[in-house]
């Protein structure tokens, strides 16, 4: 079981993280999940080519908390995540309506600076999406794009962030090797590192473990748990046990008459122990979905 608990090397030396976001200890999770809305969705609806896939989602995501989005396939979880960093803009025929707010920022406003928004809201996909060049260049690219060119700063940031995802010792001697030569789990951690390099406030994780073996999946899960408090995290997962282990809040989506809707939202404890909705109860007990 040691392999699934790599927490010792996830914890970086705080001194090395100067100039980086203040590092928060892994164990003491409770105080950092604040009852204060970081993201607000109000009557959010999403349609592809006039076919509605998500209707009237109203949801508040608390700062520093891990919120798990669960629900059967095709109920619009990915679409919801992608509307939060406006990746939906890139999908032909996708229309988002309603209201989305991050702090004071109106996400859906046409004037919103998308590059800045996406710098603040990082995203990881189901399949690891490393770029076809070296590990170092994968991490440097977003930094350079957002204006960091200083070599020593680049180097130290890369080291910090690789320490944070527990990859430093595995790759420190082959930073200039192609990233695609890494294993699937390592690639996914590199993708996480690549998102963290921009010090985002929000992390969107779309089934980050589902393409991985149980051990890599466990490593990523621990990693996500260790980020609680430092980032506002939304994670889509089909693994209810995982949601139960790491999430503070759970939002249950369901496809009713072909249109995705939010059926219940609450603390993980409430959802798993005393669900209010019948659908939720059936879903978490494995009867439906």
């Amino acid at each position: 079981m040691d392999l699934i608990q790599p927490t010792s090397h996830i914890i970086p030396d705080p001194d090395k993280r100067a100039g980086f976001r203040a590092w928060l200890p892994y164990q003491s999770t409770e105080p950092f999940c604040e009852p204060d809305a970081h993201l607000r969705a109000n009557n959010l609806s999403i349609a592809y080519h006039d076919l509605q896939v998500l209707r009237n989602v109203t949801l508040e995501i608390n700062r520093g908390c891990i919120t798990a989005l669960v629900g059967p396939s095709g109920c619009g979880k990915t679409s919801f995540l992608m509307s939060l960093n406006r990746l939906t803009d890139l999908i032909p025929g996708c229309q988002v309506s309603g209201h989305l707010q991050m702090n004071e920022l109106d996400i859906l406003a046409p004037t919103t600076d998308l590059l800045q928004l996406r710098r603040t809201v990082g995203m990881i996909f189901q399949k690891p999406t490393v770029f076809p060049f070296s590990i170092r260049k994968n991490l440097e690219l977003p930094l350079r794009e957002h204006g960091t060119h200083d070599r020593t700063l680049l180097q130290s940031t890369i080291e910090n962030v690789l320490q944070q995802v527990g990859l430093w010792h595995e790759v420190k001697d082959r930073l200039d090797h192609p990233a695609q030569a890494l294993s699937g789990g390592q690639q996914q951690r590199l993708c996480l590192a690549r998102a963290l390099v921009l010090t985002p406030d929000v992390l969107l994780l779309d089934e980050p473990c589902s393409a991985l073996d149980p051990i890599s999946s466990g490593i990523i899960e621990d990693l996500i748990a260790s980020l609680q408090g430092s980032y506002t995290i939304l994670i889509v997962t089909h693994n209810l046990a995982q949601a139960r282990r790491i999430a503070d809040h759970v939002a249950v989506f369901w496809s009713l008459e072909g249109v995705g809707q939010l059926v219940e939202h609450g603390s993980a404890q409430q959802i798993f122990e005393s669900p209010k909705e019948e659908l939720t109860a059936a879903y978490i007990s494995g009867i439906r979905g």
């Binding site: 992608m82 960093n85 990746l87 890139l90 998308l114 590059l115 800045q116 928004l117 996406r118 710098r119 990082g122 995203m123 996909f125 399949k127 999406t129 770029f131 690219l141 977003p142 794009e145 957002h146 993708c191 690549r194 998102a195 921009l198």
Partner: peptide, 12 residues
């Protein structure tokens, strides 16, 4: 996915 993740990193 790679294009989307490039966009998600705020790459122009």
């Amino acid at each position: 996915e790679q294009r989307l993740s490039a966009a998600a990193l705020g790459l122009s």
